[in-house]
């Protein structure tokens, strides 16, 4: 168990390292291919009336004049030991984990990201609760009443659900429920109130994005659960369980559902990890100031430290979600033993 954990952890770190290297080179090597010099690259960060001399100064300040490998090394070092940053009125120490300072706003990236995280987490958790309950319940019921009207209707809706792009459903729901009516009968869906400030407003404001996002996932999960249930209910051990006279409820819940849920947990873990790293489309459709919106804004503004930071954060969530999923497997599925 311990060796397995250590092996997986090392794997995770290597993975993050690879992700960081690839992202870094995209932003530094590709523009060079396009013929941009380090000073050119710095010019975009020096404001409206920049002189060539100021661009030169900026290139130096941002470290663009060094070889890419040196810049990458500096970036990695800052994460582990921190870095010093010239604040104008003095040097400030940016303590580890230091993801550098935004080229444009000149604010440290890490606290900025931590600031955005609750928004994305709120969105992901709320939506996940809804889609898990709705999706799994629909899937199980559909499987048990296979071929019924309910099954057909639910599966049709689910199929439609997975076929709708979220920026379309989000837009439509905003227009119908928020913008369109002057009374805002339903939630506004385009503002965020922190949970600690007012839980009721928090939930009210997030209701629309939650439902929109959850609809997409619930549809997929209902299909998965149904397929999984049908498969397990056809297995021999279920027949055995029935044969030995177990009540149907117990067969379904303790044997069928448990086995059918295993793949759902894997997928859920990965989906959730991916969402925590930024629900890009949902957040941009609903203008929620989460990690995903942060990422898009950073990319559009070419703000490299932010892009690096957000990519790493997102990759971190995915990698650790998959790690946790594998560990959970051992608990849920008695056939899996970690060796």
């Amino acid at each position: 168990m311990v060796t397995y954990l250590i092996r997986r952890l090392i794997g995770a770190v290597v993975m993050l390292a690879v992700v960081s290297m690839v992202t870094f080179s995209i932003f530094f090597v590709v523009p060079r291919w396009a013929g941009a010099t380090p000073v050119d690259m710095a010019t975009r960060y020096v404001g409206r009336t920049a002189s060539a001399e100021m661009a030169q100064v900026a290139a130096q300040r941002l470290g663009f004049l060094d070889p890419v490998i040196v810049q990458y090394g500096r970036w990695v070092k800052a994460i582990f030991v921190g870095a010093d940053y010239d604040y104008g009125a003095g040097v400030e120490h940016c303590s580890a984990p230091c993801f550098g300072y935004s080229f444009l706003s000149r604010l440290p990236v890490w606290p900025d990201m931590l600031d955005r995280l609750p928004v994305t987490a709120s969105l992901a958790i709320g939506a996940a609760v809804i889609w898990l309950i709705a999706g799994v319940a629909t899937g199980v019921l559909s499987a048990l009443k296979r071929g019924s009207f309910f099954d057909r209707a639910a599966m049709s809706v689910a199929l439609a659900g997975v076929s709708l792009p979220i920026f379309f459903t989000g837009l439509v729901s905003l227009v119908v429920f928020s913008y369109g009516n002057p009374f805002r009968v339903t939630a506004p869906g385009s503002t965020y109130t922190p949970f600690e400030q007012n839980p009721a407003t928090w939930a009210y404001n997030l209701l629309l994005p939650w439902i929109t996002l959850a609809f997409l996932y619930a549809a997929g999960y209902a299909r998965l659960t149904r397929a999984g249930m049908l498969e397990t209910m056809g297995e021999d051990y279920i027949r055995t369980a029935r044969a030995k006279g177990l009540p149907e409820r117990s067969v379904v819940v303790r044997h069928g559902l448990r086995a059918a849920l295993t793949p759902i947990i894997t997928i859920f873990g990965l989906d959730f990890g991916l969402l925590l790293g930024g629900a890009v489309l949902t957040e941009s459709t609903f203008s929620l100031p989460g990690i995903g919106k942060y990422a898009i804004d950073a990319i559009i503004a070419n703000d490299l430290p932010k892009v690096m930071g957000v990519t790493m954060l997102a990759a971190f969530f995915v990698v650790f979600a998959s790690l946790i999923v594998d560990l959970l497997y051992a608990v849920v599925d008695p056939r899996v033993r970690l060796s």
């Binding site: 991916l274 790293g277 930024g278 890009v280 995903g292 990422a295 892009v307 957000v310 990519t311 990698v319």
Partner: peptide
């Protein structure tokens, strides 16, 4: 590694 990439973010970048 590919699956760990924040795909959309990366593609946009």
């Amino acid at each position: 590694v590919f699956l760990a990439f924040p795909l959309l973010v990366f593609a946009i970048a």
